[in-house]
């Protein structure tokens, strides 16, 4: 058994604030090879340093090297939800240091790898999909009326979710360890994703109806029949819906981004120049 009386103790709040800030900083060395590997190492380094603090004890230095090497493995996760993995992995490292005989350190990376997929999925669709869409949908609508409250509100909404979720994800990961993991897997994750999907999709639908504003200047019978008025009478904003559904179809057909941008810009100039749409 390693002598663990040497492990340095810190207050829980110090620990949680390290999880918090270092999860937010996880993309600071994002790269094409192992992505957020150094970011995760940076996050868990204080925990490892506390467990093996003695630089003159060869056994501790060896353990510390082993742990640092372990966390250089490929990693990628949404920063906010990654705090949960960081908390959990930290509690596992502590468990391993306490009981190296019965704890297989390989499980630490196995847990990291199995969690990063679902937590990225839920994190990206929640933060990049739902929250950003709503925050910036509202903020842009206000800014279009010239109100400085637009950007302020967008940031307040973003922070109101990002800050507490990162903090509590780290705390729960550390405190509840594996038991919380089991609870998440028993269907709560799907329910959260489902609720995020509903709110996000309805907000996107609302933005299509309120924020694009495509119209047609076409008229018939010497200007007495205005096509736009007829369209408004049947389905309001139908041109906006049509444009989005057309783009959606092309995206689903895997048309490349470069082509899509060319269609938008060149096609847009052409349609406008011929007086079909505005």
């Amino acid at each position: 058994m390693t002598d663990n009386t040497t492990a340095i103790q810190v207050s829980p709040n110090k620990r949680y604030s390290q999880y918090f800030w270092r999860s937010w900083a996880i993309q600071d060395s994002w790269n094409y090879e192992r992505q957020m590997n150094m970011g995760f190492l940076y996050g868990i380094a204080p925990t490892i340093d506390r467990l093996y603090p003695d630089e003159n004890d060869p056994e501790q230095v060896a353990k510390r090297k082993e742990a640092y090497e372990r966390h250089m493995a490929f990693y990628n996760c949404t920063p906010q939800t990654s705090a949960f993995v960081l908390g959990l992995a930290s509690s596992m490292e502590e468990e391993y240091a306490r009981d190296p005989e019965n704890f297989d350190p390989e499980t630490i990376n196995a847990v990291k790898t199995s969690l990063m997929g679902p937590l990225s999925g839920i994190g990206d669709s929640f933060f990049q999909g739902t929250i950003r869409t709503i925050a910036f949908g509202l903020g842009t609508a206000l800014a279009m009326q010239g109100s400085i409250l637009g950007p302020v509100l967008a940031m307040v909404i973003s922070a109101a979710f990002s800050v507490p979720i990162t903090w509590y994800a780290g705390k729960f990961g550390y405190e509840m360890g594996n038991s919380f993991l089991e609870r998440l897997q028993s269907g709560a994750m799907e329910k959260i994703m489902y609720a995020c999907g509903i709110v996000g999709l309805m907000a996107i639908g609302g933005m299509v109806a309120t924020l694009i504003g495509i119209t047609t200047p076409l008229t018939f019978s010497e200007g007495t029949v205005v096509l736009q008025d007829i369209l408004n009478g049947i389905v309001p904003m139908v041109l906006d819906l049509g444009a989005v559904m057309g783009m959606y179809y092309l995206i689903k057909r895997n048309v490349k981004t470069t082509w899509m941008l060319a269609i938008c810009i060149l096609g847009g100039i052409a349609l406008s120049a011929f007086g079909l749409l505005a």
């Binding site: 669709s125 999907g197 924020l211 989005v244 995206i251 689903k252 899509m260 269609i263 847009g268 505005a278």
Partner: peptide, 30 residues
């Protein structure tokens, strides 16, 4: 033309969000 292209780019951006969020059976909410 660029002013109209900007509207199409907005439509494209929203369509990208839609394709990221929409799975089977969820289009009804959009």
């Amino acid at each position: 033309g660029l002013n109209f292209a900007a509207k199409l780019l907005t439509a494209y951006g929203l369509a990208l969000l839609l394709s990221m969020m929409a799975s089977k059976g969820m289009m009804v909410f959009f």
